[in-house]
Design a protein around this nucleic acid. Structure first.
Lengths: 172, 172
DNA sequence: GGGAGATACTTAACATGTTAAGCGAATGCG
DNA sequence: CGCATTCGCTTAACATGTTAAGTATCTCCC
């Protein structure tokens, strides 16, 4: 497991690196980052033409699928942090692409839904977005793409269980 | 648009979708984003303890491997855009973690190198960083991890070739 | 050898990522 | 009931992503 020899944590006066780390470009975070960037580079121009950022698009897409959602639920679906979502919703609301209203039962919660204008915008973006995705699938191979997705999903699962190593978990 | 009162009851019938896109959570960009976040979530606490962000760490790591580099070259290695790198280098230089000096032959270029202090900082972070990486590898499986890296690399290649197909025309 | 264009950054401006703090509303419990 | 705690969301503050514009330097070609 540990192929790295025992090393003094304090380090000596010697500045020479005796423990070369993995090749930088082969690190998993870098690989994932580059792959994702390679993919997103295809989508951004199209989104930009329609005045949407990647995150705004994610939100609209999530909303179109679920009719209405609370902010926290939407954050989980669109994989955005609360503060980011809060800002983006403010802007999308100002552009009349979404609608918001507080829940009657719990005044803390607000239900977010896509507006008619938002639906139309989505409809105008979706074709080109789908075309790009199809091209990517064609280039890479549909079977391989599905396999990649599975491996990524399992990576997520593997690391999700890992949480107990460092910090106490208070959930079941 | 949806103007129905809040209906907190889950499990109700879903609204009819007019634009049936792929399942949101199965989109490739989302899969890559979630996977990367799952990985980085493991590293960030350790880096944070040492006062480093993910990007700063990438830069130091890249510099430690190549001794000295021009800014543009460093941007490519650390996979950062010029403006981001420019800011980060300014901060790292202020913290005396890197050193900069303009090239003699070409006054536009500046050579960046890691400082002694930077090397020591790296040495103090590397062990825990390596440990985390080892744990991830153990959980996911070394063979599978290598396979994933290969698939990601090929995804990059597939999309890199795609660039010339539709972008060389649009010019303003 | 001088000016147009290319090059290597840097700044600027805006949007998001990330963590911490704030605020109003609900909840649990004595 | 009273009130400390928790919850849902927003603000704040700082760092980075992203695109466009700016600046200084260099190269090429006439």
């Amino acid at each position: 497991m540990a192929k790295r020899p025992a090393d003094p944590a304090n380090g000596g006066a010697n500045a020479v690196r005796q423990v070369p780390m993995r090749d930088f470009s082969r690190s998993l975070p870098m690989s994932l980052l580059r792959a994702r960037e390679a993919v997103m580079r295809r989508f951004r121009p199209s989104l930009r033409e329609h005045g949407l950022t990647e995150q705004q698009w994610r939100i609209l897409r999530a909303l179109a699928a679920i009719e209405a959602a609370e902010v926290t639920e939407l954050a989980r679906t669109a994989f955005l942090l609360g503060p980011s979502l809060s800002r983006i919703l403010r802007d999308l609301e100002a552009r009349n692409l979404i609608e918001r209203k507080t829940a009657k039962a719990d005044l803390r919660r607000s239900m977010v839904s896509i507006s008619e204008k938002g639906v139309k915008l989505m409809a105008s973006v979706a074709p080109s977005s789908e075309a790009i995705y199809s091209e990517i699938t064609r280039r890479y191979g549909a079977r391989k793409l599905a396999e990649l997705q599975d491996m990524l999903a399992e990576l997520e699962r593997s690391l999700a269980e890992l949480g107990a190593s460092d910090e106490a978990i208070a959930e079941e």
